[in-house]
Design a binder for these strands. Structure first.
Length: 356
DNA sequence: CACTCGTGGAT
DNA sequence: TATCCAAGAGT
């Protein structure tokens, strides 16, 4: 068991937070919808990255009802570049569920809110505590890092089961009077003071409560096992245009990587007798009935995902007169701006444009 | 549980 | 340059 003086810890932590907290756009009010949007955006994503997306998204979709009624195309466009796109498709799905089942009011119980798509253990606790003042823990990476140091816990925080250990402890430690401030304070401390590599222990408001600091092991915690290296994939992509200047783009499948985003026609390539360019020509013909003249290689692009590395050879391609592609959308350059592309395909487009 | 699912920035 | 990371969830 731990020897933490819980009341003093809460007081020192929360008073520091109220003193030092950053002015962030999602802290202007406690609108459950905006709290929700911010929490989804902040999953695995830095505050500085999220801020402009949050401002734009809440301007485009200011209410839960507005998001529920929006076209998915426009929703994905507002998320373009933020990554983990299933987050926003789940968010819109869940918002529709709130409108149809809960009369547009975000539920305020752990059981009901956990049923919503995209709301896992962390987001459940974050929304309930911040928007409704319910004393539920919100255990993210910051919280596990801070608490592993405070209590000198040496469990591997990369293991799913470890989160439940911290949740159990935090049900006890969380402030029942100020759960919102307590949860946000833990995360704020992790973001600003109790950082992963070089924690600023000398200015830490809860240093006197920190077991790891007392033992001098704060830089050895938390324990976190390493991830695998991403798997390399060779690809070829065609920025396909016709003589009238139209582009031909493809909508990705509704599940899996970059679901429902748009892309330039492309295929995975193998090491074989056919060159990458020839494999791409064959693919365009077989998959889309598109006959194209390929220009010389424009260049190569590397795009790194969490678990994949795309190595893409990029070609500009001219559709032969009379060839009518199937399953590709014909758009002008101006119309293309309305569709959401992953960053990898933005790079592909820019590479061919640079050669003009 | 192990894997999938993005991106840009820090060290 | 390589690695790790940042307010995780779905399968």
């Amino acid at each position: 068991m731990h020897s933490l003086h819980i009341e003093d810890f809460r007081r020192d932590l929360i008073s520091w937070y109220l003193r030092e907290k950053r002015d962030l756009p999602w802290r202007l009010d406690q609108d459950p919808y905006k709290v929700w949007v911010s929490e989804i955006m902040l999953q695995q994503t830095r505050v500085d990255t999220v801020i402009p997306y949050f401002l734009n998204f809440t301007e485009k979709f200011p209410t839960l009802e507005a998001l529920a009624a929006a076209d998915e195309e426009d929703v994905l466009k507002a998320w373009e570049g933020l990554g983990y796109y299933s987050r926003v498709r789940n968010l819109q799905s869940a918002v529709k569920e709130v409108v149809s089942t809960y009369g547009g009011v975000v539920p305020n119980t752990p059981e009901e809110i956990s049923k919503l798509k995209g709301v896992g253990p962390y987001t459940k606790g974050a929304i309930l505590s911040i928007a409704y003042g319910v004393p539920e823990p919100a255990v993210d990476g910051n919280v596990m890092r801070v608490m592993s140091r405070i209590l000198s816990i040496w469990e591997d925080i990369a293991k799913p089961k470890t989160r439940t250990i911290f949740e159990k402890i935090l049900y006890e430690v969380i402030s029942k009077e100020q759960p919102s401030e307590f949860n946000q304070a833990l995360m704020e401390l992790g973001a600003i003071v109790c950082t992963p590599t070089s924690p600023s222990c000398l200015i830490c408001p809860v240093r006197e409560h920190c077991q790891a600091f007392e033992e001098g092991v704060q830089t050895e915690l938390p324990v976190k096992s390493k991830k695998k290296k991403p798997r390399p994939v060779s690809m070829a992509a065609a920025v396909l245009k016709d003589d009238a200047g139209n582009f031909y783009i493809h909508k990705r499948p509704s599940s899996g990587l970059l679901a429902n985003l748009w892309e330039f026609p492309n295929c995975e390539t193998e090491i074989e007798l056919l060159s990458q360019k020839e494999q791409l020509v064959r693919y365009l013909h077989d998959e889309y009935e598109a006959d194209a003249e390929m220009e010389p290689l424009s260049g190569t692009i590397q795009h790194i995902f969490s678990h994949l590395v795309w190595n893409i050879s990029v070609y500009a391609a001219r559709l032969k007169p009379g060839s009518i592609p199937k399953n590709l959308l014909k758009v002008t350059e101006a119309e293309m701006q309305k569709y959401a592309f992953p960053v990898s395909h933005q790079k592909i487009y820019q590479m061919t444009e640079a050669h003009k």
